[in-house]
């Protein structure tokens, strides 16, 4: 009579997050600050991406104690990250009752070839993408939500912008194609044919696509909304800034009112220093998280 874990319920959960900000937190106290600032969800982590980058070594699923503390601290949804292809980390998070799993390139991949078959799970998944082929492969595997990969932990928006523009531009290209061109396009970008037909018909992805990876200011968040993001993830940006509480509120309001430039100017005043950030050319190829999967 009633069904759980359906595609509609999993994708619908992400639809409810639209226009909102999902914030990385590493403990219950940060989770409460995020909730009070108006976050639509929090991502429970052991370390934010910039610290993962600095620490080096293998990054894994957070200690369940941290995730559990965050689950108990807030009433908004709680997300958590599992390593790419790590079936057990994902099942553990599902068993703990997290509301969404991020199969994330921010952690060190457990499988360098295959992603999880996300359709098997009751809990919904979000995955990163840099282009339409990657987006379609993740949806094909059962992802219910997408986000740009960006380059996590850099405070540099350039990669997220590139990934959002790339996906949008390929969707526009696909929408203008005649049907007999679609199969070859599917072959070239490595995407499921039937899914491309659906995207071509509707002119958009069947799931929401958030911005993530490098958002460091309210203007960055508004920029990503302007480019067509359905919402934003802010990782290191908030709790690495001088005044996290004020900063978190400003990002939330800038995301809602992304075309109200006078307001964004007000919100941006006196926020203190944003995170320092990294220029892309200073990051060695093997340190680029976005290239860890495709």
């Amino acid at each position: 009579m009633s069904n759980t874990g359906t595609e509609r319920v999993k994708r619908g959960m992400a639809e409810m997050q639209k226009g909102g900000v999902i914030m990385d937190v590493v403990n219950a106290e940060q989770a409460k600050i995020a909730e009070a600032a108006g976050a639509v969800a929090v991502m429970a982590l052991e370390r934010v991406p910039s610290d993962i980058r600095a620490a080096g070594g293998v990054a894994r699923m957070a200690d369940p104690t941290i995730t559990e503390d965050v689950l108990n601290a807030v009433s908004i949804p709680v997300m958590a990250k599992a390593r790419i292809g790590h079936i057990v980390e994902a099942r553990v998070l599902e068993a703990m009752g997290v509301d969404y799993i991020d199969e994330s390139e921010v952690l060190t991949p457990a499988d360098d070839i295959y992603h999880l078959n996300k359709s098997d799970y009751t809990v919904p998944f979000v995955c990163g993408c840099r282009n339409l082929g990657e987006a379609a492969r993740r949806i094909g595997e059962g992802a219910s939500m997408l986000r740009t990969k960006g380059e996590p932990g850099t405070g540099n928006i350039v990669e997220a912008v590139r990934h959002m523009r790339e996906v949008q531009s390929e969707i526009r290209k696909l929408s203008a194609m005649s049907k007999d061109e679609v199969m070859t396009f599917a072959k070239v970008i490595g995407a499921p044919f039937e899914l491309l037909l659906q995207i071509r018909e509707e002119g958009r992805l069947p799931v929401v696509n958030f911005a993530a990876g490098g958002i460091a200011t309210p203007s960055d968040a508004a920029l990503m909304m302007e480019l067509g993001a359905d919402g934003v993830f802010v990782g290191s940006g908030i709790f690495k800034s001088d005044n996290p509480e004020k900063f978190a509120k400003a990002i939330v309001e800038a995301t809602t009112h992304y075309q109200d430039y006078a307001l964004i100017s007000e919100l941006s005043k006196g926020l203190g220093t944003a995170m320092k950030g990294l220029e892309m050319s200073t990051i060695a190829a093997h340190d680029r998280m976005q290239d860890r999967s495709e």
Binding site: M1, S2, T4, T6, M13, P77, G97, V98, P124
Partner: peptide, 14 residues
Amino acid sequence: RNAFGRQVASFEAD
């Protein structure tokens, strides 16, 4: 609020 449980308990019914 969240009276039926967390996301894994979300459902469809007629």
